[in-house]
C-alpha cells in the first residue's frame, strides 16, 4: 500500500473519529494571560546557579586513580553546564521583566531599577564565567531585590 493511500485512510479514519469526539480548541498563545508576569523562575534560576557553585567548590579533588579523574571531570562538566544554562535563563527572565513588564510608573517609584537590572544581568554573565561563591551570592541577592520590587509593583 502506498504512503499516499495510507495517509488518505488515516485522514478518513480521523475524520470519522472527529465526527464522534468533536475536537475542542486549545490555544498556543497567550491572548488573555499575556501581561501576567512572575518572578519565581528567575529566583529559582539564581538559586540553582548558587547551588551549583557551592557544589563545585565542595568537590574533593580526585586521587591518582584514572577512574576517579574521569568521574570528577564528568561531575564538574555536568554542574558547570547546569550553572551555564540557569544563569542564561536567569538573565532571560530578568530581561523579560525589564523590557516587557516594568513601566515608567515603576521607574518613578524605583529610580535605580535600571541600574539594578543591569547589575543583575551582568552578574548572570559573571556567574557563567567564574566559579565564585561571592558572585553567586551577589546574583541571588540582586535577583531577590528585583523580585521584591516586582512584588511591590503588584500591590
Amino acid at each position: 500500500m502506498s504512503m499516499k493511500k495510507l495517509t488518505g485512510l488515516f485522514a478518513a479514519a480521523m475524520k470519522k473519529i472527529e465526527a464522534v469526539a468533536k475536537p475542542t480548541l486549545v490555544y498556543a498563545h497567550c491572548d488573555v494571560p499575556c501581561g501576567i508576569y512572575e518572578a519565581n523562575t528567575m529566583t529559582m534560576a539564581a538559586d540553582t546557579v548558587n547551588k551549583m557553585v557551592e557544589k563545585i567548590v565542595e568537590l574533593k579533588a580526585p586521587g591518582a586513580d584514572p577512574q576517579q579523574h574521569r568521574d570528577f571531570t564528568n561531575t564538574v562538566v555536568r554542574m558547570t553546564l547546569t550553572k551555564e544554562e540557569w544563569a542564561q535563563k536567569c538573565k532571560q527572565e530578568l530581561l523579560i521583566l525589564w523590557t516587557d513588564y516594568f513601566k515608567d510608573e515603576h521607574l518613578a517609584k524605583f529610580p535605580d531599577l535600571h541600574a539594578k537590572v543591569w547589575k543583575a544581568t551582568k552578574l548572570c554573565s559573571q556567574a557563567k564565567r567564574t566559579v565564585d561563591l561571592n558572585v553567586a551570592r551577589q546574583l541571588k541577592e540582586a535577583v531577590a531585590e528585583i523580585a521584591r520590587i516586582f512584588a511591590e509593583t503588584k500591590k
Binding site: I17, A21, P23, T24, L25, V26, Y27, A28, H29, C30
Partner: peptide, 16 residues
C-alpha cells in the same frame, strides 16, 4: 475530557 482516556484538540496560535 478527563472521563475519556483520549481527546482531540485543534491548536490555535504559533507559540508551540
Amino acid at each position: 475530557s478527563r472521563l475519556f482516556p483520549f481527546s482531540i484538540h485543534i491548536v490555535k496560535g504559533h507559540s508551540m
